[in-house]
């Protein structure tokens, strides 16, 4: 019942002798963008089945942290970093933690074989999954940001900047998460790395940096999510310095490109041993 035109069939004509044997025609390779779209769509559909409770947890956790910090921090610049930090934490939880778990498990269970035996560019699998996980974070991030602004009495006028922060911080963190998941020799290690990364994003991102010792500030500067947090925090000011915001976002984008490239390399390595 499956219908395929005869002309695409390699070996459609009976091969007769050993000498007449020619190499079979190769099937078409999947091109980057269509296969990326297919992976993205498939990954997004997984959300319906498996991810919604986790997305709820991610949002609830961030909202809870914002509430908790309300008891410690007054409004002002500290409040800005709390709201920005807890919003970006949703991205860290989903893109870094969950994606690293997903790839860790996929690799350990042999699920990567499925992709590795399809003519799909490695970048399409990694980018499709990363993009889907970054998309999962959109509702939670927006909810947390809106809630945090209401809680601390911050302006929501520049909330739109999240539309740049989410994909860029998402790219950086999901690239990192995917690389952790694909490089970790065991799935438990992948989970551990993801959790650690998320905890780092939580502690270093949410707490105001001014009171931190030098070494912690250095660690904070090394974490890509920090730049997403700062970019967003700066936009609460009456007259944001957009150039600095752009620089912060640029750092996210740069880290994103590098980490996704590393993740793609890690995928290649994990898929074919």
């Amino acid at each position: 019942m499956s219908v395929v035109p005869a002309e695409v069939l390699p070996g459609g004509a009976p091969a007769v002798t050993e000498t007449a044997r020619g190499a079979a025609e190769l099937g078409p390779p999947a091109r980057l963008w269509p296969s990326l779209a297919a992976v993205y769509r498939a990954q997004l559909s997984r959300a319906r089945v498996a991810r919604i409770p986790l997305l709820f947890v991610a949002t609830f956790q961030s909202v809870g942290i914002a509430v908790m910090m309300r008891g410690v921090v007054d409004s002002g610049s500290e409040a800005e970093s709390v709201v920005a930090g807890s919003s970006v934490l949703v991205v860290a939880y989903v893109a870094l933690n969950l994606l690293s778990q997903y790839f860790g498990q996929l690799r350990a269970s042999g699920g990567l074989d499925h992709y590795a035996t399809l003519p799909v560019p490695p970048a399409a699998v990694v980018l499709g999954a990363a993009a889907a996980y970054a998309s999962f974070t959109v509702p939670g991030t927006l909810v947390t940001a809106a809630f945090g602004c209401a809680l601390f009495g911050l302006p929501v006028a520049n909330l739109w900047v999240l539309l740049a922060v989410i994909p860029l911080a998402g790219a950086a963190l999901s690239g990192l998460g995917a690389a952790c998941g694909l490089l970790a020799p065991r799935p438990e290690l992948a989970t551990l790395l993801g959790q650690l990364g998320m905890s780092a994003a939580l502690l270093l991102g949410v707490l105001p940096a001014d009171r931190m010792p030098e070494i912690v500030r250095l660690a904070r500067d090394l974490l890509p999510s920090t730049y997403g947090v700062e970019a967003y925090a700066r936009t609460f000011e009456a007259h944001p310095d957009w150039a600095v915001v752009l620089v912060d976002l640029g750092v996210c984008a740069g880290v994103g490109v590098v980490s996704l490239a590393v993740a793609t390399w890690a995928y290649r390595r994990a898929a074919v041993r």
Binding site: G27, G110, D113
Partner: peptide, 20 residues
């Protein structure tokens, strides 16, 4: 890389497709 363009493989694991 040509293998993927010549053959279809059904492995023992379905974890890549499980939630679809």
């Amino acid at each position: 890389e040509r293998a993927a363009r010549l053959l279809a493989y059904l492995g023992q694991e379905s974890s890549a497709l499980d939630e679809l």
